[in-house]
């Protein structure tokens, strides 16, 4: 059995940005395009059934990395394999094994969670009959009340919508779950429910989980290993304990992951510094 769930080798991604909308707005006389390196030779491996964290400020490349693994972005260089399948050449094979929860809970807002999730289930080859029971089971487990399951998603709070997004990902029983800031906007109780569910998924189904987050407590409590990203590069990768061990005592107390990040990059974890 292949023990490696994700293998990334020298992954490189650059975005070109147009400087002006019209030709005469590009005053420098050059091509009018700026380059932004989103992923700069990123290499790492994630083991099967591991909860792997990716920590970094806004714009560090976390979501770009998740999109490359999810087959939504093509890398400009390097390779990524998921359970041995190349994300570019064997996209459908990869898609069968993965699902993703992003920071925005994206749904057909007029449709109910049930209708949205059945749509999602059918795309993954599941029948409506087998999905219905499981949808109710997962949503109830996540704290979504039964009556809300048949109401339009637009009537739900942001936190509830995010729970439906998590349910959509769990419904297809992915071997690799990509969680891109999944608990943003959730209250502490809901966050805790999600954390418990993530651990259960790993423990009961051996699901591999890649989690990107700004929340250091979340990363520390869930992840076995954490990669710290900055400006498209992985600047450190180790267990939370080992990462904390890389810096000295901070103002007399043991260093936190935030201290580690500050030490390595000179930046705060969140863009606004909160």
């Amino acid at each position: 059995m292949n023990e490696i769930a994700i293998q990334a080798r020298d992954v490189y991604k650059v975005f070109h940005k147009q400087r002006g909308h019209l030709p005469w707005e590009r005053s420098d006389g050059h091509s009018g395009r700026q380059q932004a390196v989103a992923l700069d030779r990123v290499s790492f491996e994630v083991r099967v059934a591991e909860i792997f964290g990716v920590l970094g400020p806004n714009g560090s490349g976390k979501s770009t990395l998740v999109r490359v693994i999810a087959t939504l972005l093509l890398p400009d260089g390097g390779t990524v394999t998921v359970f041995g399948h190349d994300v570019v050449r064997e996209a459908i094979a990869v898609q069968r094994l993965i699902n993703r929860v992003s920071v925005e809970a994206s749904f057909f807002k007029k449709l109910s969670p049930m209708e949205n999730l059945i749509y999602g289930a059918r795309l993954y080859g599941l029948s409506a009959a087998e999905s219905r029971t499981r949808i109710i089971e997962i949503l109830t487990r996540l704290g979504v009340e039964r009556w809300a399951i048949d109401q339009p998603v637009e009537r739900m709070s942001r936190g509830m919508q995010q729970k439906v997004a998590i349910a959509r990902a769990l419904l297809t029983r992915p071997a690799l779950l990509l969680l891109d800031e999944p608990t943003t906007g959730l209250d502490p109780r809901s966050k805790r429910e999600v954390h418990t569910l993530v651990r259960e998924l790993r423990d009961l189904n051996s699901t591999t989980i890649l989690l990107t987050t700004h929340d250091m407590l979340e990363a520390e409590s869930l992840c076995e290993r954490i990669a710290i990203m900055d400006a498209g590069r992985i600047v450190a990768l180790d267990t939370p304990e080992a990462l904390r061990g890389t810096v000295a005592l901070h103002q007399g107390h043991p260093p936190t992951l935030e201290d580690v990040f500050l030490e390595l990059t000179g930046k705060l974890l969140t863009a606004d510094g909160k």
Partner: peptide
């Protein structure tokens, strides 16, 4: 609706 990525990453 903002669902395009979910549909295009389906197998």
């Amino acid at each position: 609706e903002g669902t395009i990525e979910y549909t295009l990453m389906a197998p």
